[in-house]
Structures are given as C-alpha cells and as structure tokens.
Design a protein around this nucleic acid. Structure first.
Lengths: 228, 228
DNA sequence: CATTCTAAAATCCTATAGGATTTGCGAGGG
DNA sequence: CCCTCGCAAATCCTATAGGATTTTAGAATG
C-alpha cells in the first residue's frame, strides 16, 4: 500500500509550508476534500510525509481564504458548499468592486497589460474546446487571470486586497464541482467587450462592460447551479 | 531583570496562539514594534514565555492583515508606515465599499442595530474628552465599531470580507502614531448624520452621508498627516 | 432496540531539540 | 579607509514527544 501523495521536496530555498499549502489547495480544488470534511493536521502530515508544524502553518494561512474553517481545539474543516444565496452575494460584491478596478486599470492602461489580457482571452478560447477536467481547470485559470490582471493594474493595492478577499474563482469552482463549462461562449464575448473598451481607453465604457459581464455571470450561474 | 511581558494563561478552553495573536497586535498598536522592525519568532516566544509553535501560527494569521510581512527563511517584519498616497488609496477603496454596506444595512435596519450604532457614537463622544493614550484607543475602537457594525449588518458576508480586507482602523492608527485626535468633532457629527439617515430608513441618503464622511476623513487626514 | 457509560484511539496543542540558513562582527588584506 | 573573508551567534525551519481534549467504539444496562 503506497502513500497517497507526497510533496516534492525542493532543492531548498523554498519553505515546506508553502508546498503543503499548495498541496491542500489542490486537494480542495480537485474535490478530494469534500465540503464539511475534516482536514486533520496530524492526518495530512502523515499523508504528505511531513511533520504537523508546517501543516499547521499552511492551514492558518488557508483559513482567511474561506476554504477551510477553524474551530479551536477541534481543528479545520472544509467550508460548506455555496448556496445560491451565497453565490448571489458573491456576485453582488463583485459588482461593487470590479467595475471600479476596471475603470482604474483602463486609466492606467499599458501595452503590456493589453497583451496579457489578450493572452488570457486566447487561453480562455483554447480551454473551451475540450470537456476534460484539466481543460476545465485551465478555463478557470484563464478567467481568474483576466479579472486579477485588471485588479492588479488598478494602481490601488487596497482595491486588489478587496478583490482578493472575495476568494477569486475558487469559490466558483466549488459551486459547480467541476461539472463542465456552460457559459464559455458568453464569457469569452464579454471578456472581449471589456478588453475592447480598455483598448480604446474609455474607462466608463470599460466599467460598464465589466458590470454587464459580472451581472450576466450572476444570472447564468444561478440558473445553472445544482438544486440547493 | 524581569521579562518584558507574559501572556495571561487562560484557565483553558482558549488556544495559546490566540493570546499570542492579541499580544503581538497590541504591541503593534502601541508602537512598541516600530515599522520595519523584525518580529523574531524565537524572540517573541521568549518574551511571551511560550514556545515558537504558537507564535508561528499567530504570525501566519497576522500576515493577511498587512501589519506584518513575511519573507521565506528571513522571518516577519512590521510593515512599513503608510505614505500619504497609501492612505489616499485606502480611503478611495473605502469610498467604494462603505456607501454600499451602508445602503444595504439601512434596508435591513433593526432596532438592535440602531441601539448599537447609537452606543458607538456615545462612546466616541466620551473618548473625545481626554488626550490620554488610552482614550485615543477608545476613540479608535468606537470609530471602528461604527463602521464594522454597518458592514456586518449589510447582509452580505462578502461585502464584510471586502471591508475587513482594508484593515479597519488599525492602519489609520499607524499613520498618526497616536499623536492625538484632531477630527473628533467632525467625525462625531458625520457619524450622527449617517445614523439619522439609517434611522429614517432612507438608504440612498445613508449611502450619501457615508460617502460624505469617508471623503472628509480622507481630506482631513491627509492634511494632518506628518510629512512624508 | 435504545441509551449510557467507559475505555481506547485519534486529534489538537504546546514544548523541546537540532539541522539549515541568515546575520553580525571582527580580523586581515588591498 | 574600504573591502572581503570567515567564524560565531541568532534566527528560521522541521521533526519528535507528550499532555490535554475530543471523538469513537463497544460493552453494559434499562
């Protein structure tokens, strides 16, 4: 009987807790750790063949992402699945924050930003093709990258912090459990609309396009979501 | 030579890392730990008379508040002081988020919320009286409580998360280093304006009053801030 | 069969130890 | 005087051990 997994030990220069963090994050995204399941400190330490100390540190960092919940003296559990209401609330919050980051980023637009945004849209198209799990992950990665690039280039670190507080696309993934890409065509077109407005240097139009995009994601996702 | 400090050991039922967290936070607020200073894991463990393990966990949690910065293999340092630009950015972000939380909280207004808001304003007035350090802390606590109450009662956990990502009033304290209360009278009047609009059940007016308040705080604080 | 109690296993939490890395400092050479 | 080198101290990082608490499983009882 072989051990289920094992972190790749770096030559050095990297801290073990970072790898443990990534490993747990992967388990959460893959669905190996289901919502509500306990994430035992000693247990994952055994699984990953490390001591409990770095696991403890990784979980402490993971807590503020909202993916795991800590209860004193009882350990960590995977956060429960999103309800439709949770998801609607998340999208409402994004409707407040993202149009602003978009407008700000548009005002500070650079060729480098345009190129990276263009690339993320290309990746989005490529990932749409197949229905495989890996491609679904690529799709979400490209989607997340588009929104994150805009937040990072807003020029306001606190707007980026607010965006990050919403948990990025991770939460979106957990809602659907990786069942498939249902709104790829719409999302690509909407990303392109935002991109064109930024390219033209029209901040208000860019903000409006982002509002439109997030609003439509909200609507589509709630329709497609599995029954509560 | 006596030890500089020592955490109060609880009867039990509370985890040591929580107390270490509070203790370090206090040190940061008091200014005992100056910006840029190193926060040694082993060192603070000795100071607080605990083992490094809970200190490590407390610092991992503190990192996402932005008060300390971690560099792999080099430990944690107190985050650098805010520049005027940083502070302006923080207020700009609050201008995006807080009017929305205010409007939402107003729509869900309850007698209990009104009472707590009223109390926070009363505490603000009481703390204004004296120039002592403790009263300055009370002042900031009451101020923070007012804004936090509104965010908590917005009904949208993600808006609260976005608000919390901004670091609350902690950052504000660090800007001035506890020199004194310069805008108490203004702030009290503005809080009361927000309160009245909520009490009347006028969400738009409440949002506008909050916009006005944060905007004025932005303006006053940048004027009063020490030279960069 | 349901319930309660008890004991054992699992888990969390803290402390300690030691290896790996970085930092500080003083000597020596240019 | 300045720079480099090398050793020692401090610090970070990980592992291990053991006490405290929670959970689980099974026996005993109604």
């Amino acid at each position: 009987m072989m051990k289920p997994s094992r972190v790749a030990r770096p030559v050095s220069r990297q801290v073990l807790a970072d790898h443990v963090y990534e490993e747990i994050l992967e388990s959460l995204m893959d669905g190996r750790l289901e919502p509500g399941a306990q994430v035992s400190i000693d247990g994952t330490a055994r699984d990953l063949d490390v001591s409990p100390t770095p696991v403890r540190e990784a979980l402490a960092r993971l807590e503020h992402t909202g993916l795991v919940v800590r209860v004193a003296l009882k350990g960590y559990r995977v956060a429960p699945v999103f309800s439709r209401e949770d998801f609607a609330n998340l999208m409402d919050a994004r409707l407040v924050i993202e149009p602003v980051t978009t407008e700000l980023a548009c005002r500070r637009m650079t060729p480098a930003l345009l190129e990276e945004l263009r690339q993320s849209i290309t990746d989005l198209k490529d990932a749409r093709r197949g229905p495989s799990f890996a491609e679904f992950r690529d799709y979400l990665d490209a989607d997340e990258r588009f929104h994150r690039l805009i937040a990072e280039n807003s020029g306001n670190p606190f707007m980026l912090a607010a965006y990050e507080a919403l948990g990025g696309q991770v939460q979106r993934f957990r809602l659907f459990g990786g069942v498939g890409i249902t709104d790829a065509d719409h999302a690509i077109a909407e990303h392109q609309a935002v991109f064109r407005a930024i390219e033209l240097g029209d901040p208000k139009a860019a903000a409006a396009a982002m509002t439109e995009h997030v609003g439509r994601v909200r609507q589509r996702s709630i329709q497609d979501a599995p029954p509560a």
